[in-house]
Design a protein around this nucleic acid. Structure first.
Lengths: 105, 105
DNA sequence: TGACTAAGGTCTACTTAGTAG
DNA sequence: CTACTAAGTAGACCTTAGTCA
């Protein structure tokens, strides 16, 4: 039985989805509905995404990300610290963004 | 007729693919083959990805990213400066990574 | 060469109906 | 309620066969 702890490259989206949803304190169905899915199929689809059975497309991930305040790239990031960085980046004041971008030069 | 300059949320993958491929000086076919595609269909598929006709799955993007030295998240990032940051992040020494992560606290 | 396209078969996401805790 | 699943339909991708500069 494959657990979530490993995080192979292929199901990183499923892992991040679960992490972010639980952190927001929402059910699979609730999140799906808030992301614009029809209530009749929201539970099933979100569950399929979270279990790695199916992969949401970019538009769907963008809607989910809007609800959870995460950029789409967050769901594709393997490194935990980098993922957290992406989730926080947009909220930073311009001065801090500039400071960060200076470091990579 | 939507051009590449705008960058709508839906074809961001196509835009980043083209940018990264041109920067690497590869043809669509060359990149596809280097990413493990069968030479007979490499040109068509890479062209479809780059034109936004179809979207590559995560495994495909990971292979392309390996060739172009970009993380998968790079191809999903709208903000140009943030995309560039992601492309450079992995190459940074640990000291600089820590410095960046300090700023967001 | 390199970029690009239409069409059809193949594959996968999505919908429906339903189970179990 | 919540999480989860099987099965079939609908829709997306992938392959083939080409065009054009």
């Amino acid at each position: 039985m494959p657990g979530l702890s490993q995080g192979t490259k292929l199901d990183i989206v499923a892992i991040r989805l679960k992490q972010a949803r639980l952190a927001a304190g929402l059910s699979q169905r609730e999140l799906g509905i808030m992301a614009g899915l029809d209530p009749s199929g929201a539970s099933t689809r979100m569950n399929q995404y979270e279990r790695g059975k199916h992969v949401p497309n970019v538009a769907m991930l963008a809607q989910i990300g809007r609800v959870l305040s995460k950029p789409v790239a967050y769901f594709y990031t393997m490194d935990d610290r980098l993922a957290e960085f992406l989730a926080e980046y947009e909220k930073l004041p311009k001065s801090k963004k500039d400071k960060i971008l200076e470091i990579i030069r």
